[in-house]
Simulated scan of single mutants.
Amino acid sequence: MAKIVLKVGSNLLVKEDAIDKTYVMKLVSLVDELMGSGHQVAIVSSGAAASGRALLAFKGHSKSLLSKQALCAIGQPKLMEIYQQAFSFYNRQVAQILLTRDDFNNRQRFLNLRNTLIGLSELGIVPIVNENDTISVDEIKFGDNDVLSAMFSICWGADYLFLMTSVDGVIGEDGTVIENYPIDIQNVKIAELGKTSFGSGGIFSKIVAAKIAVESDVDSYVINGRNLECVKKILRRAKCGTRFVTSKQRRLSKRESWVKYISKPKGTVYINEGARTALLNRKSLLPVGVVDVEGKFEKGDVVLLAHGEEILGRGITNYSADEIQRIKGLRTSEIPEEIYTYDEVVHADNVILEIKTL
Rank of each mutant, 00 (worst) to 15 (best):
D103C: 10
D343C: 04
I203Y: 07
N281H: 00
A2M: 10
I335S: 12
V302N: 04
L228R: 09
Y23D: 13
R114W: 04
S263E: 10
R276D: 12
A158K: 02
Y23M: 11
Q186T: 02
A278L: 05
G199S: 15
I74P: 09
L79V: 12
V170A: 03
R282D: 00
A95E: 10
S247E: 13
H61K: 15
V41I: 09
A238T: 13
N132Q: 05
K254F: 07
L65T: 03
E179N: 13
K7I: 03
K7Q: 03
Y342C: 06
G124W: 05
R255G: 04
L65D: 07
G308S: 02
A275G: 00
V94G: 09
H39Y: 03
I135R: 08
K264W: 07
E273G: 05
V346D: 02
K299T: 04
Y221F: 06
I97K: 11
R251V: 04
Q249G: 05
D138C: 08
Y261N: 14
V170Q: 13
K248W: 06
S220L: 05
G313C: 04
H307L: 00
A73K: 02
I140Y: 09
V269Y: 05
E337N: 11
G225A: 14
E310R: 03
D159V: 07
K248E: 07
